[in-house]
Nucleic acid binder design. Structure first.
Lengths: 250, 250
DNA sequence: CGCTCAGTTGAAGCATTTCAATTCTTGTGG
DNA sequence: CCACAAGAATTGAAATGCTTCAACTGAGCG
């Protein structure tokens, strides 16, 4: 896993490509300018790069502008649990700007662009731009929701329900940021990643996915996932489709 | 499960009994007065009371002043996952003051005292008292950490490790708020609660606990838990004892 | 004293893991 | 364009951990 190195500044916040997505709340020019002042630069990485490492302090926190990444923790003997995937618009590393060190690691799955903000200046957001501070908390609370639901899934759903739930979850989140076209999403990760997210073994994950696709509930081939009938998959997954999904843009 | 009803105002924030605990950061008089102004009252409940219900909006958010509670989610068919226990000093219901509705429920385990704050006034904290707003985010980030670790536990630890981990986790959190005397804590919940937190069946949880106590790693009888050797239990649990545990008082 | 709820136990069944191959993809160099 | 290597997906079979079922024991309470 290669180590991240800082890079150049390319995308001005005023033209942030994420602003067009419906999920994000409308944001004022004052707020945008404030973010722009805070932005330290961009980090452009290849796939498979460790952006933040469990146990290390971080000088920066990030917003993922482009690409996919994932958060994970490991046990000494190598067992890995992926706690969540990171999609464009997600904030990464707030936790280490509140605590001393990261409690989890973050790796990229694809080439990625991250906006970087100096950890030391987070306080300015709270001091001078309460609406953005509120958004930070909003994002933390939303991440908490995702983790709660995932805990329910791993703890109480069986393999089929759990896999169905997770795929749908990813699909809907990807849809929110405009990554779904004609019912298809790019899934830039392996079955092993999914297994580590579900808390299942790779082999059993494979067999479970096979069952889902045999039943016609989804297709996942060559890195693309297609869901013919979202409601049908939600039924299997015991997924509540009526959750609000609007969120702030940071 | 009985329904909560508002109650009288007894404990002035200036004399908040939690201020003495080392875990909480020192807090200024200005901040205390601000909290005091915001406090709507107290909620005193008996054990087994639902304070917040999944799917419902909430007019209030709460700080638990005294007692134990737990957060949980359920599947339609009744399967329940306890996502975390709530101890004195914990904030409950921030999520619903950011989103429209609660994504999980909260029940008390013991008689409890909760300080209530009107949902509608959370914004004032961000607007007028950034240091407290920061604390709210801090608490959310800390809760996120707990959930991450728990996800690792359920997903990747086996039953013995998972139970050992969870008991130790509860023990240390209880210790932080002064609930441990001579290595003993009150555990005001049943093995079924623990099973629902671990994502295991009741029967298997029982057998797993038995193994832990036979091995001399802990004793849990008549509602009291005693851990003779914290380091030994941590070893089994693959628990990292060197995590920072200081936190802000809200 | 008898009821109820929580904890305990053994046995059978099932879901999931582990082990061990094999096949399919993808990318690379000749 | 083909051969080859490396990573990813797939498969079957055996082993294990966890769940479920069904009973029984113990503790607390009126």
């Amino acid at each position: 896993m290669s180590q991240a190195t800082p890079y150049t500044y390319d995308v001005p916040c005023q033209q942030c490509p994420l602003r067009v997505c419906e999920v994000f709340r409308p944001i004022g020019d004052g707020e945008i300018d404030f973010i722009a002042k805070l932005k330290a630069g961009e980090l452009r990485t290849g796939p498979g790069t460790t952006v933040l490492r469990e146990g290390s302090p971080s000088e920066h926190l990030f917003t993922l502008l482009e690409g996919w990444a994932f958060r994970y923790k490991t046990l000494e003997d190598g067992r890995r649990q992926i706690t969540s995937f990171v999609l464009p618009g997600d904030l990464v590393g707030i936790q280490s700007s509140m605590q001393a060190e990261m409690d989890h690691s973050v790796d990229t799955l694809t080439a990625a662009v991250l906006c970087t903000f100096p950890r030391g200046r987070v306080w300015e957001v709270y001091k001078h731009c309460p609406s953005l501070a509120f958004d930070v908390t909003w994002l933390a609370a939303t991440q908490e929701m995702i983790l709660n639901e995932n805990l329910l899934s791993i703890g109480r759903r069986n393999a089929v329900e759990c896999a169905a739930y997770y795929i749908l979850h990813l699909y809907l989140r990807a849809e929110d940021v405009g990554l779904v076209t004609e019912g298809k999403v790019r899934f830039p990760f392996t079955q092993e990643h999914l297994a580590d997210a579900l808390g299942l073994s790779l082999v059993h994950t494979n067999k479970t996915l096979k069952r889902l696709s045999t039943r016609g509930l989804m297709q996942w081939e060559h890195g693309w996932c297609f869901i013919p009938d979202v409601a049908a998959l939600a039924e299997i997954a015991k997924f509540d489709l009526n959750q609000p999904r609007k969120r702030p843009l940071l």
